[in-house]
Simulated assay, not measured.
Amino acid sequence: MATGLIALLDDVAAIAKVAAATLDDVAGQAGRAGVKAAGVVIDDAAVTPRYVTGFAAEREIPIIRRIASGSLRNKLLILLPAALALSLLAPWAITPLLMLGGAFLCYEGAEKLFEKLAGHAPPPETGATGDPKALEDAKVQGAIRTDFILSAEIMAIALATIPEAGFWSQALILAVVGTGITALVYGAVALIVKADDLGLRLATRPGWLRRQIGCALVRGMPPFLAALAAVGMAAMLWVGGGILLHGMEGFGLTALPHALDALANAAPPWPGARWLAHAALAGLIGTLIGALLIPLVRFVIRPVSRVFSPAS
């Protein structure tokens, strides 16, 4: 009896070790997939704060909560099942779809870059006016639509990072990535949006140090948001260009990726120098491809889309 109990405990311990190893593997792969999607995550965090601009301070956190909830639904209820179905039924389509998303990132990044260089502000968003509730609903829906595109790219990058994982491991990793990135992005956005309110509160409190911190927060948020937008733009170009170069290698078009690798590997052997060289070259390719896509989108894709959706 004692021997049987010991054997049972040994079996339970072995199962627990396997489960722990599996969870460690899932956590490690989810972490790597999240890092691969970092550029899209940065852009997501840079884009979202503008959707709460112009609303009362007490509505900022509820709006962010609504957008985060919609983002989580996008990832877990739509994109995760779609990614798993794609992995099962058409794994050959993952690379082309990933490259399509990379091209979209290049286009978005290049358009923002050229608008910045030309000194043109993006066109104002249209939406409901007059009724604050209708305006808030329109802003939230617009943010969720934008998030859907970025979330699709995040999930595609994550799926491409774990091609050898089993079905349930893929499902768990994608769920961890989707949930973790949503919490990270919208937690950061909430902190960014409320930082100036905290600064104003501190600036009116007694105490020299509090007032200095409060004034620094109030003065520092506009340049911080501008810097975050610039980092997001650069990340889109770098990640998009890198995705396209990697996809070209997958299709056997290795001349350009290998030439760029050789250039990057010729960088001085300083810490991070080769990584920076790879990122800069991928960003250059992303900028060139995005520049080529801008007239295609403006003069072909958008007019055609208007023909097929006249109500919009």
Rank of each mutant, 00 (worst) to 15 (best):
S151Y: 06
T182V: 10
D131Y: 00
A171Y: 00
L159S: 05
I181C: 01
L191S: 15
P124M: 14
A118L: 05
I149E: 11
T126E: 15
P96I: 01
L159N: 03
F104N: 08
L172W: 13
L198N: 08
K116V: 09
P124R: 14
K139R: 14
G187P: 04
K139E: 05
F104T: 06
A83W: 01
P96G: 03
P132C: 02
P123N: 11
W92Y: 11
L88T: 13
A110C: 01
D131W: 01
K116S: 14
E108S: 13
L174H: 08
K116G: 09
L86V: 06
L135Y: 04
D137E: 15
W168V: 12
G130L: 00
F167L: 14
L184C: 04
L191I: 14
G178S: 09
K194L: 12
L184F: 08
L159Q: 03
L135Q: 12
L84H: 09
S169T: 15
A183W: 10
I144D: 05
Y107A: 06
A156W: 02
E164H: 15
D196A: 14
C106K: 02
G101P: 05
A165H: 14
G142Q: 10
A83Y: 07
Q170N: 15
A121F: 08
P91S: 06
L98E: 04
T182Y: 05
E164Y: 13
E125S: 11
L113M: 13
L105Y: 07
M99L: 04
P91Y: 05
L89A: 12
D147S: 10
I154P: 00
L184I: 05
T146M: 09
E115S: 11
H120D: 12
A82Q: 03
A90N: 08
P163Q: 05
A156Y: 02
A195L: 11
F104D: 00
L191E: 13
E111Q: 13
A134P: 07
V193M: 05
V193W: 05
E115R: 12
V177L: 10
D147R: 06
L159R: 01
A103P: 02
A183L: 12
A118V: 04
G109A: 02
I192H: 02
L100C: 06
D196T: 15
A165N: 13
I144P: 01
A160P: 03
A152Y: 08
E153M: 15
A82P: 06
T161K: 12
L174P: 06
A188T: 13
L98Q: 00
P122W: 13
A93C: 03
D147A: 13
L88P: 01
M99V: 03
V193G: 04
F104Q: 03
E115C: 10
A175I: 06
A121Y: 10
I181T: 10
A138G: 10
T126Y: 11
K194E: 12
A190E: 00
A138N: 09
I181S: 01
V185G: 07
S87Y: 03
L172S: 14
V177I: 09
A171E: 00
E115L: 14
A156S: 13
A103E: 01
L135S: 14
A188C: 14
G199E: 01
L86Y: 02
A158F: 08
L84T: 09
I162V: 15
E125L: 10
A90W: 15
S169R: 15
A160S: 14
S151L: 00
A175V: 02
G119N: 09
